[in-house]
Design a protein around this nucleic acid. Structure first.
Ligand SMILES: NC(=O)c1ccc[n+]([C@@H]2O[C@H](COP(=O)([O-])OP(=O)(O)OC[C@H]3O[C@@H](n4cnc5c(N)ncnc54)[C@H](O)[C@@H]3O)[C@@H](O)[C@H]2O)c1
Ligand SMILES: NC(=O)c1ccc[n+]([C@@H]2O[C@H](COP(=O)([O-])OP(=O)(O)OC[C@H]3O[C@@H](n4cnc5c(N)ncnc54)[C@H](O)[C@@H]3O)[C@@H](O)[C@H]2O)c1
Lengths: 236, 236
DNA sequence: CCATCTTTGTGCACGCGTTCACAAAGACAT
DNA sequence: ATGTCTTTGTGAACGCGTGCACAAAGATGG
């Protein structure tokens, strides 16, 4: 039946709730640690503690994937690692390009956890011609003009943006135009992308401001803050 | 009823919903851009577009702060910048320590947007004695043993962790013990902290995995299946 | 085979967050 | 002053996410 799929409500992924998807990597990390310690099985209670979530939530999350547990025993660690990996699409190779090899881009390129889960850095791109050819994390920096060819040749579908904010939209447009359909944005800008392209953002400044908000509240907790510290400056 | 015994639902901040708090920095950024262009007023529709959110959501968000708009006109940009800054606690100075001055920590120290909103890097700390004294972004790296003294002397309440995962909990414990009550964690680990301490995490690997999940769905959707609900379940 | 014990899987209720839709407020023109 | 037009502020409905609580499933021991 033709269900109304006009726009994307940002949820509803083939029955797996978005909130669950966001936690699967967390479970996977905890399970991988157990696997390395050769732990055969784990209960929802133990795994939930390791992942820092509620055990009922974890069980419900897993129930979306299927009935992979054994009552009275728990979950088989290896089996669950495989199932979650498969569900997340980590059993295949994901070529990634990083655009903007400055302080942050270089750090990302050097990040070991990058390649550890099927993500392979296909290329490092920068507009600064003087960087071209320079090795960063063992890879040569290529000029941004090679973007389209590199994305096409390597079938890159994921792009990471670590350029200044002013260049982020332009880089996004080029990435999308070249065929990239997932973008991880570190620049502090809102990106416009067509339907079908996913954008996730990492913003240090926003995180700090959220912490500051709560910090401020903690500081003024015992004391009643009078609301009168706003002078009568009325808007025009 | 009798079940009203919740410790901390992670929400309920003096009436301002957590989801709203998380968007305030977004609005602030858009408003700051308008302010720099000397735009005097802005409608909820325009500002929402700039911040990438729904206009009704924006208006409701602002309604938690007060009635700062003028019907038929919109919001006074300067006034709103001030109100949001004050609400977020950005009118005061927030000393921050960064622990773990490796690839990422150095990039963070060099990040300009850090100081732009009242966040001041009080110190850079690392366990590697050979780094001590070295200048990063104009600041000398101090040894981790100075942590307690630095936090106390500078009244640091926010700590950023950029150490390897294995050291993150230990660093957290020391930070908390020294008086830090807000932590931004870049290490891929779940941190345990006592009540009253806020932790926010930034995890590149998790973001990529979420993107990969959706990317996988895209790849297997528009191809063969016309409206396929269940695309070929792989047996184990 | 039966009893007991552990742990899963989920029905259910509740609260938060989002969005629609519109009355009210105010600016502005006449 | 009065009418018109724009835009805010919010009541209400709805859907998603969370967590409780428990029946069912299955392991284990006798
Ligand atoms: N450094 C951090 O810790 C940090 C933290 C949060 C966010 N950010 C954001 O990440 C981005 C990068 O930060 P950074 O500190 O690495 O800056 P940077 O100036 O060190 O690096 C930016 C790089 O992007 C390149 N570049 C500029 N325009 C380009 C274009 N059109 N195409 C390709 N490359 C281009 C530059 O040549 C430079 O090498 C910024 O948007 C910054 O706000 C950085
Ligand atoms: N580099 C990235 O782009 C990136 C991205 C995501 C997450 N991370 C995470 O951020 C962390 C840092 O990454 P990195 O690439 O900068 O690693 P790195 O090895 O370059 O730097 C780690 C630094 O921490 C210091 N350190 C180790 N133990 C310490 C301790 N007990 N106290 C104080 N300092 C200590 C080390 O001396 C080193 O300088 C890691 O947990 C990594 O997984 C990094």
């Amino acid at each position: 039946m033709a269900t109304g799929r006009s726009h994307r409500p940002a949820t509803r992924s083939r029955g797996i709730p978005e909130a669950t998807v966001a936690r699967l990597p967390l479970y996977l990390r905890a399970l991988t640690a157990l696997s390395e310690r050769s732990v055969p099985t784990v209960s929802s209670e133990e795994l939930a503690a390791a992942a820092g979530v509620n055990s009922a939530k974890l069980r419900k999350d897993f129930s979306y994937l299927g009935s992979y547990g054994t009552r009275g025993v728990g979950y088989d660690v290896e089996y669950l690692v495989y199932q979650i990996s498969r569900e997340l699409g980590l059993t295949q190779d994901w070529p990634v390009v990083i655009v903007g090899i400055g302080n942050l881009g270089a750090a990302l390129a050097n990040y070991g956890g990058f390649a550890s889960r099927g993500f392979r850095v296909a290329a490092l791109l920068d507009a600064d011609a003087s960087l071209a050819g320079r090795l960063v994390a063992g890879l040569p920096v290529r000029h941004i003009d090679e973007l389209e060819a590199i994305v096409a040749d390597n079938q890159v579908s994921i792009g990471v943006i670590a350029t200044p904010a002013g260049a982020a939209q332009e880089v996004t447009d080029r990435l999308v135009n070249a065929g990239v359909t997932s973008i991880l944005n570190f620049a502090p800008t809102v990106l416009s992308v067509p339907d079908g392209v996913d954008v996730r953002k990492v913003d240090l400044s926003i995180e700090l401001q959220i912490l500051a908000f709560h910090e401020q509240r903690k500081a003024g907790e015992g004391r009643q803050e009078p609301d009168g510290d706003v002078p009568a400056v009325m808007p025009a």
